[in-house]
Amino acid sequence: MRLAVEHVTTYTYDRPVRRVVQSHRLTPTACQNQRVIDWAVTVSDGVRGGSFRDGAGDRIEGWSVKGPVEAIEVRVKGLVETQDMAGVLKGLRESVPAVAWLGETAPTAPDGALRDLAAQGAGGDALSLAHDLAGLVAGAIAWVPGRTDASTSAAEALAQGEGVCQDHAHALIALARLRDLPARYVSGYMFDAGEAGEAAHAWAEIWIEGLGWVGFDPANRCCPDARYIRLGCGMDGAGAAPIRGVARGLATESLQIAVAVAQAQQ
């Protein structure tokens, strides 16, 4: 599938800021599941910094804006050819061993309810266990936008039984790690033929010995296919954030995000 992405993030400040520094994870992962035809990231008034592939294989790029400025626009525009690989991530070179993704972070820390849920996962081999866990998460947390925010933990989302893709991913990661399966948070885009849903998307990857990393998207009760574009991963949502930034100055920041993913004409 050929997908066209347009993703604009606008930061506005109530008073001028200086020395804005950002770290981007905004380039599609170099793997067999997707091929970049055209991709460009620009930052208004920005200077491009160092660029490299990190230990998990993600492309990271630094940016800075000297300022003073009152608004910054990060614009991503590109075209990607994707393939359905049944959720299996193929051909990504990485240096972090799978076992390192068993650790715990605050948003994915287990509580009693998560432990109970994890224990319900049956399944003979690791793959069917992972599918089981994904199903349990989808059943336990209904997709309801606006009830959680960026700081909501897996335990909190499970307790209220509602959340969005970030909460599904966190919960699944927590369950997988409880069952000793390495797991990580993936951020990216998703093309949805219907009008609803989030074009900026997040899901989880679980390490299946012998198969490698396999994606699971409890929010959509499926594994990532040709509709998905993968940008990068981390221990949790904060770790996989496409943009991280900080500005010098005492201004209050407000954020506006517009993402459109469309199927391109061939």
């Binding site: 490299f52 230990g55 972090v96 061993p97 076992v99 390192a100 068993l102």
Partner: peptide, 17 residues
Amino acid sequence: ARLVYLNEAYEKAVAGF
């Protein structure tokens, strides 16, 4: 492996560098 890779001081951020 776990002693190394799940150690608090192990930094994924510099793996491969």
